[in-house]
Structures are given as structure tokens and as C-alpha cells.
Design a protein around this nucleic acid. Structure first.
Lengths: 250, 250
DNA sequence: CATAAATGATTATTTTTGATTGATTATGAT
DNA sequence: ATCATAATCAATCAAAAATAATCATTTATG
């Protein structure tokens, strides 16, 4: 039983039940709880599900605003520190892209009072910024019910009609070779946003650094600034590729 | 029983009852009062409810933007009856437009189990159809924070790229002379949806019949079917304009 | 065969929960 | 109004459960 097969099974059960327990999954799939936990961590990082204490639930079942439930989210302290640093570069009057994904989502809390325009394909971002000072443009297209984001060719084309001063992007993994995504849709949206903005920020907590996923979609050429809580040896490699690195601590 | 699950339960009970006591919640959910108190503190901090001595209260409707999502909405019985009748015409395989507005929103509950594609510019519709059998396409563009909908020229252009078999539209007012809207944006979206679908249904409860608003945007030529709880004299006039009228009672 | 990756067992750490206790707040009688 | 009583609350602590981290073992892969 490979990871892909288990992931499929888990998503199936999740779709059917809305929420699942680790105990239950381990028994159902026939692997140890440790493995299930690892799988869930992976899938949560890709935005396929929301990790709870003892199990997982569908992202779409989260209570809105999502920031409420997210207090217990994976690695949220690192993500908050990253986003706080990134938000310092956002000024009134800016037009920014915000990518979908749990990391970029945490940017919302730091920009609520800024007079900016946010263009996003993430439904949680829209919900979160609902009653804030920012004006929101939502990318149109197919709704991905699992990731809670807008995807598809129409979405990608729609992004191309906008232009922003800064883009705040996420990725499933990043190595010195490039960026990795969990799905083609996400990759093309991320790339589209990058190409339509003056500066692109990549928000990556330590768990993403050095990690690869099934689809490599960029050789790091689109990334201008990497914001991360990681400070290991790869940092200099990123810098040698003309990437400015913001190292944050918390 | 995780925190998220309890939060759901609490919000559910709160929505139903208006206010709840800690004793009651503890018994209902099957956890200690201490835990309930902790949950309520968390939720109150996020503005999901008001904490009272011994329990909690629902936050006032004024503060919540999506006011038409709950049963307290205006005239909901008539709207439900209208939408129920309209939903009978929706079959598996259909592609339909759903307009923004409180009336069309109530269509959601009747189509959750249909295998259809819904194209909409209404954020509450997207939220409501989240865990349903339907696939959703969201119109892109500017987010109107008051109406909870997407509008603007990009939105109108985006609608033009789709085609649907049926469109379920709303209006601020309808007379024998035409349709009235409260804003240009809404009007152009409604018109765009109408022109891109084979059949257009207008969902209007009695309070809209005979009412005018500041912008007349159509002379009834785009309306194929009017679904309403009104059964006064104007009905024959609508019929004489080649509009099929579904009169519902409740 | 050697290396790398994935899995499972074990242990330490963290999170969650519920009980207890003293402080605070509401209620009603005077 | 004031006080006494009862209820609720916040804080602390301990137990249980879940998680993260480490290491050994198994399984794949070149």
C-alpha cells in the first residue's frame, strides 16, 4: 500500500464522513498510526485536509472565519512569523496577489488594516478579509472543493488580466533546483501570479525546504524573495540564485 | 470529540436557540463544564458568539454580514416555496446560473443532491453548496462586501464565457414594464446570465411584485418563467408578455 | 549488493481534558 | 441600598491522550 493509495483512501473516507480519526484510519487501511499521522501531515501541508487533534477534517467544514480554527494548525507559529515579516513590506496603495494554501492564508491577519487591494483565488482568504479595510478581487473559475480555491484554465487566464506590485505565494516544496506543487492547477496559478507581479515573495516554513512533490514547476527564477524560518546551509544556495532571503525567528 | 466538532455543535445549538447554558451544552456534548467554558472563551475571542454569565448568546444579525443565510431572513417561507418549485425543473446534468441575492440563495437547499454544475457570483451560494454533490464555478471579479457577491466588468465578461441551460435570477422589483435593480453591477450580471442561458427563471416573492427601484434594466423580454407566491391581477399581464408563471402557495 | 526510502516501535514532549480551590459575579431577602 | 447566599468563573494541577522525535527494521530501487 503506497502513500498515493493511502492518500486516496483517506480522502475518500473524508469525503464520505467529513471527519476521520487516526485510530480508525490505521485500522481501515492496515498501517500503523505513525504512518497515518505522517500521511495526514503531508496532506495537510498540501491543503488537502485540515489536521485536528486525533484526526482530520475537510477544509470546507471549517468554521468561518477560518482563522478561528487555525489556531491549532500545523506549524502556525512559524507561519505567523513568516507572514508578519512579509506583511512589513506591504504598504498602503499596494495591489497584491495572495496564493491559496495555509501559509499564505496567515498573511490576512497582518493586512486587515492596510488600504490595499488583494487579488486571490483562495476562498478562506476572501472570507477572512471580508470585513477589513482591503478591497478584494476574486479570481474566477472552477471551485476546488477540497483545497477551497479557484482553479482551472479560466482562473489562470483571469489572473493574467491583473497586475500587482507584489505576489505572496506558497509551494508544496522547495529545493535548490526549483519549486514543487501538489497539483498542476496550483502550479499554473502560482506561476501566473508570479508573472503578473513586480516582486514575488515565496512564503515557506521549514517543513517545505528541501522537500519535493510530484510536480516541479519552476527553477526558482520567478522567486525574488524567500521568507522562511529555516536558516540551514541551503540558504546561501538560494542567495546565489539571486533570491533575497528573509530569515525569521520566533 | 475534537474542539472543532464541539464548536460546530455549539454554533448549531446557538443558531437554533439563540442562547445556550453551559450546563446544557456540557450535557448535550458530553464533556465537562470546564471544557465548554474553554470552548466558549475561544469562540467569543474570535467573535463567533457573545459570552454571558452561565452561557452564551448568538451574535446579533447586524454584525454578521451573511444575514440571509439563516432562518431569520425576510419572508423565507415564501422564498423557500418559490425555490422549491423552481428546483423541480432542475435535473441531473444541468448547468445553471444562480444569481446573487437572498431569494436565489434559498435555491441551494433544494439542489444539494443533484448532479449539476452551478455557476454563480454569490459567495453565500458557494459556501452553502460546499459539501454537496454539485460542482461550482465561481464568477471572478471585484468582491462587493455588502452584497457578498462578485461584480464589475470583469465579472460580466466572465459570465459571457459560460453557457447554461437555466438561469435562476433575482431582481429588486418587477412590474409589467420591466425589471428593476438596486445597482448597475447587479443588473449587468443578471442580464449577462440571462443572455447566456437557454431558459431564464425569475424568482420573486410578493414583496417585489409591482415594486420599482432606481434602475430599470430590462423590459421583461429576457424572462421566460416567473416563479412567485403572488397571484393578483398582474399575473395575466405577465402571461401576455409570453412569460410562463408558476404560482406557488405555502 | 548497496543505498535510499518507507514503515513501525519506543520514548519524550505536548496537548487536551477534568477535578479542585479560591475569587468573582449574580440574585434575592432584608 | 446592603448583605448573605448561591452560582459561575479563572487558575492551578494532575491524568490521559495524542504528537513529535529518535532509532531500528523492513521494503523498494538502482
Amino acid at each position: 500500500m503506497t502513500f498515493q493509495k493511502r492518500a486516496h483512501k483517506i480522502l475518500e473516507l473524508l469525503e464520505e464522513l467529513g471527519e476521520v480519526e487516526i485510530r480508525q484510519l490505521a485500522a481501515e487501511i492496515g498501517v500503523s498510526e505513525v504512518t497515518v499521522r505522517r500521511d495526514l501531515a503531508n496532506m495537510a501541508a498540501s491543503g488537502l485536509l485540515y489536521r485536528t487533534h486525533g484526526g482530520a477534517m475537510k477544509v470546507s467544514q471549517l468554521i468561518k472565519p477560518v482563522s478561528f480554527a487555525n489556531k491549532a494548525a500545523v506549524n502556525f507559529k512559524a507561519k505567523d512569523a513568516i507572514c508578519k515579516r512579509a506583511a512589513e513590506d506591504i504598504n498602503d496603495g499596494d495591489v497584491i496577489f495572495i496564493d491559496c494554501g495555509s501559509t499564505a492564508f496567515r498573511l490576512c491577519q497582518f493586512i486587515k488594516n492596510k488600504k490595499i487591494k488583494v487579488i486571490t483565488n483562495s476562498l478562506p482568504v476572501v472570507n477572512e478579509l471580508q470585513n477589513s479595510a482591503v478591497t478584494i478581487n476574486l479570481i474566477g473559475g472552477e471551485v476546488d472543493p477540497i483545497r477551497q480555491a479557484i482553479h482551472g484554465t479560466i482562473a489562470t487566464e483571469h489572473i493574467a488580466r491583473y497586475h500587482a506590485s507584489k505576489a505572496f505565494l506558497g509551494a508544496d516544496g522547495i529545493t535548490c533546483d526549483g519549486l514543487y506543487a501538489g497539483s498542476e492547477h496550483e502550479a499554473s496559478n502560482t506561476l501566473a501570479m508570479a508573472s503578473q507581479s513586480d516582486q514575488t515573495y515565496l512564503l515557506c516554513d521549514v517543513s517545505k525546504i528541501g522537500k519535493t512533490s510530484y510536480l516541479k514547476f519552476d527553477d526558482l527564477s520567478v522567486v525574488d524573495i524567500l521568507v522562511t524560518d529555516y536558516n540551514g546551509p541551503e540558504i546561501t544556495e538560494f542567495q546565489s540564485k539571486e533570491i533575497l532571503v528573509y530569515s525569521v525567528t520566533y
